[in-house]
Design a binder for these strands. Structure first.
Length: 713
DNA sequence: CCAGGGGTCCTTTTT
DNA sequence: GGACCCCTGG
């Protein structure tokens, strides 16, 4: 691996001293492939090794667990074991940690649950049924997005209501969804709190609220943490900016690194202004610009520069590289998405043979997750090993969500959302009608759903249902008893020689078996997906086992606590237990979305599906939401820029003339961004489409504008 | 009132 | 492929 210090040779004396300096705000504006993260790692290593700074005082914040893990490794490589005490964490994990310690002051239970997408929707649905808008005429996902949007901007329910009202007063088109969402927001929050839960956005929002309101907490954290570093700063939203600002405190030792051209998360509230106006937010900032690209060939870089120059409103910078000019970029046209996938697979085979490349050196990038399927099929057909990064994450699979809901129900009886999710799965004679009746009664009597189950009888729901409820309650009670025993066992140091699962995992395994989860899956699904689903359930148990071992391996560090089921659930939800060992070891061609690719690099990159409606995505073409987040087409362009700059040596681009979407094939047009790539950088590769010779000639001679006209007919 | 089968949508990007 | 809804049979 090339070393950070090597990269810093490019820094002039002032820049280098800025990066090494121990006081005041620093902004590192860095282009793609310029060694951004390495610079941060270097700064951390310098602080640690200079021996002026206690490593325990340093915090580095990333956006993904993957990035955190990687940074952790690199920092250790550079600064040795001392660096273990540096806190390297995602924004959300950091928030969770602060709330775990101090959340009581906001009325949160010490062991709050963290809701991810599926549970959020459950809570919203339940909340909306209270204002009788649970019918199908409203798209609850859209309501959820709106609520999440307010949360990332730091608005509380009352403020959201005011905001909507003032928008209407100003005569803006009245939006039913905005009004509805504002009402739903408050109820949704109440539901979450009643369940003892917070959602992802709360991990940031509540942390900021706590920090703002509580001087004692601020002081405590300022005492603990003195240095803050933030990676990918261009992706911070309003709440994250506030969190950074408060945590940095009067010391203002905040060093951020980012690239406005790689801002691709406006859809979830990220605001490029945060990086563009950093100097205004933190007066006295030293700015370091990194414009040298160490990653890509000249041609790839030229293409990237050409693409991104189509965007206005950016910190103009032109990346330069001392790398070789490199081969031309490839452009393929295919008839169908299936042919496109096969073409990529073939090309990978050929290059691996002729250039003796390893599978790991290839990546295939796409705009949307479902696009991975055709690619997977093609790769499998040619026996090419691959790994899909991201996608429908493990913890969003239905059977996994259900299993976690079981665990949460046992851990926290007040978690109505979890309880209702699993109350009749596997089916046990507590049907929809009964559940609705109990829910209605609970609301009338203003008591918790779970508490009502304890006292409900045959008079209320009939003999059969009542008996089923009693049996189920007994089952849960027993599980709570055995979990308490397992947690006690888990708090004892594990034996040197381990056999079987550690206590919590063993308990979960036995619990799932007693519920006959596998039988239920088998009868629910007659298809071949059964085995995968069963495997997923076993993976839940395996993940808990991994969690326990990991916690014990960290025993003795600052504020260590023994493993507990609630902590396991929190870490699982935050996906901190994702990735890890096995996933990294598993080699093969990498398949992922352009979003997931940020921060990574590969020798050979293929970007597929360069079509209107895919990239740029159809949703960015409607003009909807354009005012709020800036130009969606500019963000799509940055997305392509990110993809292009992942490639070190070779870049392949492709699109097809027809693509299966849903069930039927639809004709597609090449992406507008293709036109922005200078033609002399590109070689058009023949792929045997069914174009007529004339059309083919047009394509060859007139590249993009030609085919666009052709397809416009 | 409950369970199971068949039909019908839909699919941006993520912590 | 998958999640969800509605309908039917028990």
């Amino acid at each position: 691996m090339s070393t950070p210090s090597l990269y810093l040779n490019q820094l002039n004396v002032e820049q280098r001293s800025a990066v090494q300096r121990t006081e005041g705000p620093v902004l590192i504006l860095a282009g793609a492939g310029s060694g951004k993260t390495r610079t941060l790692v270097y700064r951390i290593a310098h602080l640690v090794r200079s021996a002026q700074v206690d490593p325990g005082r340093i915090v580095a914040v990333t956006f993904t667990n993957k990035a955190a893990m990687e940074m952790r490794e690199r920092v250790r490589e550079f600064a040795g074991d001392e660096a273990k005490r540096v806190t390297i964490s995602t924004f959300h994990s950091l928030g969770a940690r602060i709330l775990r310690e101090h959340g009581v002051k906001l009325g949160l239970p010490r062991k709050f649950a963290i809701y991810s997408a599926a549970d959020q929707m459950g809570a919203l649905k339940s909340a909306c049924s209270e204002i009788s808008i649970d019918d199908d005429s409203f798209d609850l996902k859209r309501v959820m997005r709106q609520i999440s949007d307010w949360k990332t901007r730091g608005l509380a329910p009352v403020e959201a209501v005011k905001h909507v009202a003032s928008e209407q007063a100003r005569g803006n088109r009245s939006d039913d969804y905005a009004v509805l969402s504002a009402d739903a927001y408050g109820l949704y929050e109440e539901m979450l709190r009643a369940c003892g839960a917070v959602d992802f956005d709360d991990l940031l929002l509540l942390t900021v609220r706590l920090l703002r309101e509580d001087e004692m907490v601020r002081q405590a954290l300022w005492k603990r943490w003195h240095y803050f570093m933030i990676d990918e700063y261009q992706d911070t939203n309003a709440v994250q900016l506030e969190m950074a600002r408060i945590l940095a405190g009067p010391r203002r030792n905040l060093c951020v690194v980012g690239d406005d051209d790689q801002s691709i998360y406006a859809f979830r509230g990220a605001d490029v202004a945060n990086i563009l106006e950093f100097e205004r937010h933190f007066p006295g900032t030293t700015v370091v610009k990194l414009e040298h690209n160490y990653r890509s060939t000249q041609r790839i870089l030229a293409a990237a520069n050409a693409i991104i120059s189509g965007n206005r409103h950016r910190h103009a910078k032109t990346l330069r590289t001392g790398n070789p000019i490199g081969p031309l970029l490839d452009l393929w046209t295919h008839d169908t998405d299936v042919a496109e996938a096969e073409g990529v697979a073939r090309e990978i085979q050929v290059r691996r043979m002729t250039r003796k490349m390893r599978w790991e050196e290839f990546a295939v990038l796409y705009r949307t997750n479902p696009q991975s399927r055709v690619l997977e099929e093609a790769l499998r057909a040619q026996n090419i090993p691959y790994r899909v990064v991201g996608g429908t994450s493990f913890f969003e699979r239905k059977e996994v969500v259900d299993c976690l809901a079981y665990l949460r129900t046992v851990v926290a009886a007040e978690d109505e959302i979890a309880l209702r999710r699993i109350i009749n799965w596997p089916t046990r004679g507590i049907g929809r009608t009964t559940v609705l009746k109990v829910a209605a009664m609970a609301r009338e009597q203003r008591i918790q759903f779970a508490r009502l189950l304890d006292v409900i009888g045959a008079d209320d729901v009939g003999a059969a249902s009542s008996a089923a409820i009693t049996a189920f309650r007994k089952q849960l009670d027993e599980a709570r008893g055995s979990l308490a025993a397992a947690e006690a066992a888990a708090a004892m140091p594990p034996p040197a020689q381990e056999h079987g699962f550690p206590p919590l995992a063993a308990w979960a395994d036995a619990f799932f078996k007693s519920l006959a989860i596998e039988d239920a899956l088998r009868s629910d699904h007659r298809d071949r997906t059964v085995e995968t689903r069963i495997e997923n359930v076993r993976d839940v148990v395996g993940t808990i086992a991994r969690y326990e071992r990991k916690v014990w391996s960290e025993a003795g560090t600052d504020d260590w606590e023994p493993p507990s089921m609630s902590d396991a659930l929190a870490r699982l939800t935050l996906a901190e237990m994702d990735e890890d060992e096995e996933d990294l070891e598993q080699g093969g061609v990498t398949l992922m979305t352009l979003h997931s690719a940020k921060g990574l690099e590969f020798s050979d990159v293929f970007i597929v599906g360069l079509e209107e409606g895919i990239l740029p995505h159809a949703r960015s073409l409607t003009g909807e939401g354009a005012d709020e987040y800036g130009d969606p087409l500019a963000e799509e362009r940055r997305l392509l820029y990110v993809g292009v700059t992942r490639a070190m040596n070779r870049l392949g681009l492709s699109y097809c003339l027809s693509r299966r979407r849903g069930g039927s094939a639809t004709a597609t047009m090449p992406s507008r961004y293709l036109e922005e790539i200078p033609a002399d950088l590109v070689e058009i590769r023949d792929t045997g489409t069914t174009l007529t010779p004339e059309e083919s000639t047009t394509l060859q001679s007139n590249f993009f504008s030609g085919i666009k006209e052709m397809l416009a007919d």
